[in-house]
Design a protein around this nucleic acid. Structure first.
Lengths: 225, 225
DNA sequence: TTGACTTGTCACCAACTGGTGACTATACAA
DNA sequence: TTGTATAGTCACCAGTTGGTGACAAGTCAA
């Protein structure tokens, strides 16, 4: 509890937590292990057990310190289409999708954890899972509020769309780490992703609001470009 | 080159190749290794080096023996919507997507290799990559032929759609191996996948043929349920 | 000063990994 | 019979993994 002692322990803990990120970035999730982490942190591996109770505890500490997922406010930040405009909903969903993609492509650690989820379940993947579920549903809630429609109907309609497009983005972005081509598209070029976003927007054009009286369900203006 | 000698080598090789599939199914891709494979095959691991030149060679042999991906004919098998019907194209794409999903959900080894692709590149993932690229493009070619449209335009329009929906299916099916919930959906229940296919079909409703004179781009009949 | 506690270092463990060299046993051809 | 090639067994290697016990040095309170 003294100054110097406490400070030393603190720096050791911080070194270890930073080592998690560092190893993930430079070696990928498969490089995570007590030996590698201790080596990278310049610290003895026994401290991982003493201070964090083991690798799982260290990952938990890192998970609590890091932010692996977009914040709801960022995804729903203005400018977004005016809800009263026709086609505001599809446009809005397309913007949200673009922001989701942009986040993934600029967060290599998140991509690494997403890839990790494919093969194992651990404290990091669990943390990502939990926050992702929460915030995805929060985004849907936020959109229902914005468009002033019943949340349950909206959720039932939009959740599977988000699941599909979100899954596609996660998969393609994670794959793009090491491999470029998927179905003829280049996952490492700006053009490839622009193309993907355009196609997503096109498909989202089919989405209409569920029931409110303002929604027009008959003649929808599809201007296929 | 004698009968018995040759036969014995053959059975050893076959045991090893079968061990690859067996280990993947029971332990997942992370269980693949010379020791585990030899143990499972009931054979000494040195034979992996002698007969296949190493683990990579054994994986290659397995890759050549197995079929990890749907065949083009299966994906385009009849019955498919009559090309002259209105909305035949979106319906057709939706059927293809459903078949893609059905294949994945019934082929655990493929899901395992898909998951493997996320973390490493090896002979198995390379084989899957190659055959997947080829056959996906072949399916697009087949559809262009069916709808009698120019292949290049059609390809430019449909390839990114396939990339998005295919990626989503791959991701969700692979994740469904160990985790059930994604964005509120249940990836391990029939209902969850029915929902996903319905949403995909809904989104595909926005797709129209590129140029031929028969295509109607104005009044689209959206009946949102 | 004494004793208790914390921080960190180090040596060590068993288990496993990929990989190799030496060996026996069998079969075949000369 | 002799030589050669193959199939298979086994012991062993070095390196790495996760994990622990013993110990020295420093710090603090009584």
């Amino acid at each position: 509890m003294t100054d110097t002692l406490a400070r030393d322990r603190d720096t050791s803990e911080i070194s270890l937590i930073q080592a998690v990120e560092s190893v993930i970035l430079e070696e990928g999730f498969s490089g995570i292990g007590v030996n590698a982490l201790a080596r990278r942190a310049g610290v003895d591996k026994v401290l991982i057990y003493r201070y964090f109770g083991g690798l799982a505890g260290l990952l938990t500490a890192y998970a609590e310190a890091g932010d692996f997922w977009w914040r709801v406010d960022d995804l729903l930040a203005e400018p977004l289409p005016d809800p009263d405009r026709p086609d505001a909903l599809p446009d809005c969903l397309a913007r949200v999708f673009e922001r989701h993609v942009a986040f993934l492509r600029s967060h290599p650690v998140t991509l690494e954890v997403i890839a990790w989820e494919m093969s194992a379940r651990n404290e990091l993947t669990a943390a990502l899972e939990s926050v992702r579920e929460d915030r995805s549903l929060a985004v849907i809630r936020g959109l229902a509020l914005r468009f002033d429609v019943a949340e349950s109907d909206f959720q039932a309609q939009v959740a599977p769309l988000f699941a599909l497009l979100g899954a596609a983005a996660n998969y393609l972005a994670a794959r793009g780490r090491h491999l470029s081509r998927f179905n003829g598209l280049d996952l490492q070029s700006e053009a490839g992703w622009t193309q993907l976003c355009k196609s997503a927007e096109h498909m989202l054009g089919a989405v209409r609001l569920p029931d409110p009286p303002t929604a027009i369900t008959s003649t929808s203006q599809d201007q296929t470009p």
